[in-house]
Amino acid sequence: MLKDITLGQYFPGNTVIHRLDPRTKLLGLICYIVALFLAKSYYSYALMALVLVTLSVLSRIRPKTLLSGLKPLIFIVIFTGVINLFYGSGEPLVQFWIFKITANGIRTAVFMVLRIMLLVCGTFLLTYTTSPLQLTDGLEKLLAPLKVIRFPVHELAMMMSIALRFIPTLIEETDKIMSAQRARGASFDTGKLTERAKALVPLLVPLFVSAFRRADELATAMECRCYHAGIGRTRMKELHFAARDVVALALCAVLIAAVSVLRHYGL
């Protein structure tokens, strides 16, 4: 069950998309999200879907892998769709009791579902093609201007990369604790919801205790390796913008422009 978590998973590769500077990819994702919220018609959503398909083909990430990221979100997607279905205004197409479904409602529901799916897939495409270290490096560089207002940019990036590093370790540990509790008769997947929630307490307590112990040891080990915050720190792999990054960013601008034009003409 826990092994299914794909958050922060990275598929190494050497495609154009993989080689893009992480800053370009982060900015690209922001552009994609902006464009997604500007989209108001079937045409613009088709365009957004086409962009996503093109990117996944370019990065050789199989559509199945991309869609598997949606699995944990199925409930939210369906829920949003159903809610929006009943909240449309105008002539009802179908009506029963206090519920009515309008053409407008169907339209909004379809758009909302598409929007969430494209948003999630787009984000996953970023983490699938960018190593966690590159990602946090890119974020650190992009947020660097915030240092002026004393925002702890380096610390934030460091925390993110350590959190990503420890996800598999803590998952492994959770599995181990669950097995130990099961061996002593605990049950995690039977009983009522409240009972299951209660069963999590003896799981979470040792997990937290161990996480704090790990954090303490890690801090000592980092100090031993001369960590003293971001002051005077260099990087082995420096980030460089290449020609392809300029092209990619230009294409992002074109995408936003295209969606804006479609929106303007009500398409």
Binding site: Y10, S131, L133, S161, R165, L218, A221, M222
Partner: peptide, 14 residues
């Protein structure tokens, strides 16, 4: 609890 990075060589570079 001593390894900080998600890739071996990045950790050694720390």
């Amino acid at each position: 609890n001593q390894i900080v990075a998600s890739v071996v060589e990045d950790d050694v570079a720390f």
